[in-house]
Nucleic acid binder design. Structure first.
Lengths: 222, 222
DNA sequence: TAAGTTTAGTGAATTATTTCGCAACCGGCT
DNA sequence: AGCCGGTTGCGAAATAATTCACTAAACTTA
């Protein structure tokens, strides 16, 4: 396929500053990738922006426009080679490697996260689980891990090279924990606590709060 | 406080069709509410759009504009009475009541969700936990619940009047489960499975997928 | 009371995002 | 070879969201 090796247009596009590509576009790429992988698992080899759009409930134009920020991945008349586009999206998102992740909080949510199967195949591996409760230290969790004391954070970060943490801690502990994570050199935090964290501007935080989703839904209910 | 009883402007605004208020605005209201409740817990009585914006990392103008879709809740020179604004947001979001929620999936994620403390104080109560695994039926879960067979779905929905479900099931089961939820009359689904569901247009689905957040983050990393 | 400070609400301007519409192109078919 | 249906990539247009900037109002202080 002629475009698999890239071309001048694609390289120009890729050379753009990251900051110039809207964050909202980046946020959709993982969903595209996820959907493409399901199609691939289904044995499909090729798809189109139209088919993808129907799956996702968005317009085909949006998908084409989003992808066009990064290069030319499709073929007129044919569409997109699924495996190829997956690989390209993985490269763009930097998940053509495995990222070590540190999990803080070994309560029932932390345990669920430690057990979650999808991380490995998506570019992430939980390399340490930390908790402040002395009762929990040493207990096995997830796939071959043991709960470590939170005070080990520095060593865990240094040993693994992790940049990413997941926080599954109670709201009242979240800001304190976040401060320590930043202190330890982490720059990306996925926070399950229902609180907006205050962090330096070089640290990126994303939030998961089911209540926010529920309350968004109930607005439309009676 | 003069604006607590509402006024002509506020009523006009409230009379607008829901569809006319941007969904993105609705999506921020739960975060405002969450933040206001933290301030209230802190003993604070009054805040300003500027203070809220600093907490949340957004502009004060955006907060004022968002709120202005629904009425006039503040006082010039003073700001917003926190308790009052909380109540108003709860009314707007329809969480000035308790919504029954059906949880499907009693694996480790389902268990974590069933144990989650924040729902009660936010307007939600898990009223049934369903699973397809016969081994799990009858086991206690969450606060005083027992796992029921998924085939009970119809009865659970009818008995509770639930409109909302949370899906904590494996990806391969998700579409099938979603079909049943829709069939049973539910119209709002919070889906933790990493898949985009296909549902009729009267059903609203929101997604929680940590991988999407991780991959969004890694775009900005090296 | 009067001046100074703070803040909400909002129309207008700006910026961002999505959609439209079409030229160029691909592959299959006759 | 030439035509046809299908599809991308993309500039331009349309729409949506955010920010600006200002008025009016409420509180504070002297």
């Amino acid at each position: 396929m002629s475009n698999e090796g890239g071309n001048a247009v694609a390289n120009d596009a890729r050379a753009q500053e990251k900051a110039s590509i809207p964050d909202i576009v980046i946020g959709r790429l993982p969903v595209y990738l996820r959907t493409l992988r399901l199609l691939a698992d289904d044995g499909r080899e090729v798809t189109s922006s139209q088919e993808l759009g129907e799956h996702l409930g968005i317009s085909s134009a949006q998908i084409r426009k989003d992808l066009s920020h990064f290069g030319e991945f499709g073929k007129q008349g044919t569409g997109y080679n699924i495996e190829f586009l997956c690989r390209q999206l993985q490269k763009i998102l930097n998940v053509d490697r495995i990222w070590p992740v540190i999990l803080v909080g070994a309560g029932s949510l932390g345990t669920a996260i430690a057990n979650y199967q999808e991380f490995d195949s998506s570019g992430f591996r939980i390399v340490a689980v930390l908790d402040e409760d002395p009762q929990k230290i040493g207990k096995p969790i997830g796939h071959g891990l043991r709960i470590e004391e939170f005070a080990n954070l520095g060593k865990s970060v240094a040993g693994s090279g992790a940049q990413i943490a997941v926080m599954a801690v109670p709201a009242h502990a979240a800001q304190r924990v976040a401060n320590e994570l930043v202190e330890a050199g982490l720059n990306s935090i996925l926070c399950y606590a229902p609180i907006t964290l205050s962090v330096p501007s070089h640290v990126r935080v994303e939030y998961i709060d089911p209540v926010v989703h529920f309350q968004h839904m109930t607005y439309y209910l009676n």
